[in-house]
Design a protein around this nucleic acid. Structure first.
Lengths: 192, 192
DNA sequence: AGTCGAACTTGACAGTGACTAGATTCCTCG
DNA sequence: CGAGGAATCTAGTCACTGTCAAGTTCGACT
């Protein structure tokens, strides 16, 4: 059943429906398994309908990536302290694996799309402001390096977790807890 | 000209030729742009020839990933000290971007392939032995955590670099130097 | 010499993304 | 109220892809 109108012709909210279906497929089988025709079938519309909302296959993925960066920016804004921001980064990856997967694969995206650029810039600003919040982080190069370090750590951990490469080490434990222990190990002196 | 025989029917070393072409394509346009038929065309053979060497598209990518893990294990074995192993990890990603990209995308691979599993196990062992080489790393959980931390950092940095997300911050500097500074910042107390 | 298997070819099929022209519906403005 | 224009969706086509099944050629071994 269409979400809004049950009129037979207009779907009501095809854009949302297709996005949702796409996220399901990507989370389950990866971006490669994504087919516009399949998405159209799931939504019960003709095979060319998706193209009207997202031009391309690339366009669809770009929209997903942009949405992802916006969600990530929101998630980061929830916490003030740097370590907890790292946890939000990780949590975002766990809760939105499909978005995460697409966001960092530039060859799938239209990297000059203004919406994408804006969302990414917002997320980037949020990332940087997290590092700036740490008082003793110096200015200039050191602060920039610390930012890269924090980002690399959170990103690497999240990526490895999502790619099933941390299956054994993390085992049954809560990934967020493991990540917290991890940061405590590295930053034992500078933070609580 | 074929590498070995110039006989018109048998290529001589089709497997190598197709692998090489595939790496070029992936490095330039990502794994999504890879087409068996295109690879066949580049090698000057018929469209179904690749399937004989690698069953599938998935089979081809699995072979690449396995080769990647083997190369990574070799690269890690070159250095003894942990930080320098991180640098080798990064260097591997820079020198073999196509391999790296495919290795950590399980949805593209036949994850139960024995060759792949063996190569990955070898790389994993090499990773762990690097952490064990650090004297003051405790046993048990701490050592395991330290391993995950080191791996996450190196992996995150490499991934972000390859996905063009570290373009501005790294700017013109040598990525390896940036990474070294980064680790010095984090492990300032425990190592030189 | 002869055969057997591996390497490669040829041909065919269904599914895909992209494009086009046209049908239907909705909304706004007179 | 009742056009008309824009948004939305349908239907058909084209080149391309992966995969399958069946042939052909080659080389190595007995």
């Amino acid at each position: 059943m269409p979400t809004a109108k049950s009129s037979s012709y207009h779907h009501g909210d095809l854009r949302r429906a297709i996005l949702a279906a796409a996220l399901d497929v990507i989370a389950a089988e990866g971006p490669g398994a994504l087919s516009l025709r399949d998405l159209a079938r799931r939504a019960g519309v003709s095979h060319a309908a998706p193209a009207h909302h997202f031009k391309d296959r690339t366009g669809l993925l770009t929209a997903i990536a942009a949405e992802g960066f916006a969600l990530l920016a929101d998630a980061l804004a929830e916490a003030a302290e740097l370590r907890e921001r790292g946890v939000r980064y990780l949590r975002f990856g766990i809760q939105h694996p499909a978005h995460f997967q697409v966001m960092f694969q530039p060859d799938l995206l239209r990297t000059d799309d203004p919406t994408l650029l804006a969302a990414r810039a917002r997320a980037g600003a949020e990332l940087r402001s997290g590092v700036a919040a740490v008082p003793e982080s110096g200015r200039g190069d050191d602060a920039r390096l610390a930012g890269i370090a924090a980002w690399s750590l959170a990103h690497g951990f999240t990526t490895l977790l999502l790619s099933e490469n941390l299956r054994d080490p993390v085992d049954g434990r809560d990934p967020e807890d493991v990540f917290r222990s991890l940061t405590k190990l590295l930053f034992s002196d500078s933070q609580s």
